[in-house]
């Protein structure tokens, strides 16, 4: 499986690797798949998932690219004053430019887990070259059903009336300083309306979307369909597919879980971006 090393981006300080499809499988119309860092894990991904999946996808005719954002893995740490979001968008654009220049790629699918999913969302919203995104444990916001399930689960663990009263009070009198409810896990999520607006724009653009949530983020996502409830105002058309895997952990540690995930991603990509006949 041919792999090629690229040094690119500001000062050529970013490092990434393409996995190229065999010439017989190459298809100019297929998007290139870009893997983004999951948290602090370098480009190979949690338990090397990106390397393995990149090679599988190349066998299916997709050009795949895994790289380290600045300050992660083997990429340089930037010393300019740009903010995290601005840097991420700039570096992702540089990755796409590199793939266009060296491999003729014209459109892209971005994928990531956790912070990688948040970044993939931002990149897709900002760059029209993105034709699809695969987001693992991305944004989620509480709903009444989420809270009920959470209380039920908590009640089973500890039947403490004060806890219940605190939670119920937070339902009727949410703290205006937070977009969420006390005691619930939040990353630093943007307001739900902002994410909804992005998703609406992406759907209108025809961006294909696969969202997968695991039981590992039960602190903010705990039932099948919570995403739909979160974003009822968005007309996704046929762009959206959603999976919920409550038995699985956040980083797909078990091999069987990882294989299931990789099968799902590979299948989705082939379905959404079929080979030209």
């Amino acid at each position: 499986m041919p792999e090629k090393i690229h040094r690119f981006g500001p000062g050529r300080g970013l490092i990434g690797l393409t996995t190229e499809p065999a010439a017989t499988r190459a298809d100019d119309d297929k998007p290139a798949v870009i893997f983004l860092n999951a948290g602090l894990v370098h480009r190979i991904g949690p338990y090397r998932m990106h390397t393995v999946l990149a090679r599988r996808l190349a066998e299916r005719g997709f050009l795949a690219f895994r790289f380290d954002l600045s300050g992660l893995g083997d990429s340089h740490t930037r010393t300019d004053n740009r903010g995290y979001r601005e840097r991420t968008l700039e570096e992702a654009a540089a990755a796409m430019d590199t793939l266009s220049q060296h491999h003729g790629a014209r459109r892209f699918v971005v994928t990531g887990l956790c912070s990688g999913a948040m970044n993939a969302h931002g990149i897709a919203a900002a760059d029209e070259r993105v034709a699809g995104m695969i987001l693992l444990d991305a944004y989620g916001y509480p709903t009444a059903r989420f809270l009920l399930r959470r209380y039920a689960s908590n009640a089973l663990r500890s039947l403490h009336p004060r806890k219940l009263i605190t939670h119920l009070r937070s339902l009727v009198q949410p703290d205006p300083a937070r977009s969420g409810v006390e005691g619930i896990d939040y990353l630093d999520f943007p307001p739900r309306q902002e994410i909804a607006a992005d998703l609406g724009k992406l759907a209108a653009r025809g961006t294909r979307m696969l969202f997968i949530y695991t039981g590992g983020v039960g602190g903010y996502y705990n039932y099948e369909g919570q995403f739909r409830d979160n974003f009822r105002s968005v007309d996704f058309g046929d762009c959206l597919q959603l999976d919920y895997l409550p038995a699985v952990d956040h980083t797909f540690t078990l091999l069987r879980d990882r294989h299931t995930l990789m099968d799902r991603i590979e299948g989705w990509l082939q379905e959404q971006f079929p080979e030209r006949r």
């Binding site: 039981g215 039960g218 409550p246 038995a247 956040h250 078990l254």
Partner: peptide
């Protein structure tokens, strides 16, 4: 902390 329900299946 990792699995909602212990993975006895694994």
């Amino acid at each position: 902390e990792r699995y909602a329900v212990p993975r006895l299946d694994a």
